[in-house]
């Protein structure tokens, strides 16, 4: 059949079958609802969150922390990555620090962030920032070092000076590298925000997850996981569109 030539349709069909089997297994009593509630129960938990309207302050807190950390992380990562790539002395100082930060799973810094910045928004932004900034630093640092020398020479031989080379070659080249890693950075920012909230917070999707865990509410936990997934996928979609628009020359 022609309709099944479409990939998304086949994927949707596979997902529907999986959900139906899961629901059937739940209703047949093959799955313990305490650990693996049926999809309908998860769906009701999700709808309930929106009907009561309690979810919005939590969504706002998580988005605020993730986007704050993302913007700050990109800004600082770009500045430090560019400085390290262009000034060898700065690279000597920064590279070992960034290597160390990269070597440890950075979410272990979450408790430290809570001690330093409190249980408010600051500690979540800080954790998301560290996760994103290290990624962006290496992206920009490596990107600038891999700039095509022939393009630099071409702009120079056309009469361009240092600033022209930066504007015409380095900036677009690095933008392409950042855009290529933007989806990963978005994922990191949400990881930082949610883990930060999980460790210590009074608001946010991570806080709700922690609450659901402490009350053994698996349906709520899975509803929140799917909700976070949906939000991040929506942002991935927006990032993908932005990437396509900005990098249409590729």
């Amino acid at each position: 059949m022609k309709v099944f030539d479409r990939i998304w349709l086949r994927q949707l069909l596979a997902l529907t079958i999986a959900l139906v089997l899961w629901e059937a297994a739940g209703r047949a009593g093959w799955l313990n609802p305490l650990y693996a509630p049926a999809p309908s129960r998860i769906g009701f938990a999700l709808i309930d969150l929106f009907i009561q309207g309690n979810i919005w302050p939590h969504v706002e807190a998580t988005f605020g922390a993730a986007l704050g950390g993302l913007v700050l992380g990109i800004a600082v990562g770009v500045a430090l990555g560019a400085a390290a790539a262009l000034v060898p002395f700065i690279a000597e100082l920064l590279e070992p620090v960034m290597m160390m930060l990269n070597a440890v799973p950075r979410v272990v810094l979450a408790p430290l962030c809570v001690i330093w910045f409190g249980i408010g928004l600051g500690s979540k932004v800080a954790l998301a920032f560290v996760l994103v900034a290290v990624l962006v630093f290496f992206t920009v640092y490596t990107g600038i070092k891999q700039v095509d020398r022939r393009l630099v020479e071409r702009v120079r031989t056309l009469g361009g000076g240092r600033w022209t080379v930066l504007r015409e070659v380095y900036l677009p080249f690095v933008t392409a590298w950042i855009m290529g890693n933007l989806k990963v950075a978005v994922g990191f920012a949400f990881t930082g925000a949610v883990v930060g909230e999980f460790v210590g917070a009074s608001r946010g999707l991570g806080y709700l997850l922690s609450f659901a865990q402490s009350t053994y509410n698996a349906a709520l936990m899975l509803a929140l996981v799917f909700l976070i997934m949906a939000f991040v996928l929506a942002i991935f979609g927006a990032a993908g569109r932005l990437e396509k628009r900005l990098l249409r020359w590729r």
Binding site: R150, R154, T157, E168, P172, A176, L247, W249, R250
Partner: peptide, 13 residues
């Protein structure tokens, strides 16, 4: 003026 072996055009322009 110089013409290299590679055309060295800016790909984003």
């Amino acid at each position: 003026g110089i013409l290299f072996q590679d055309d060295a055009l800016l790909p984003w322009r």
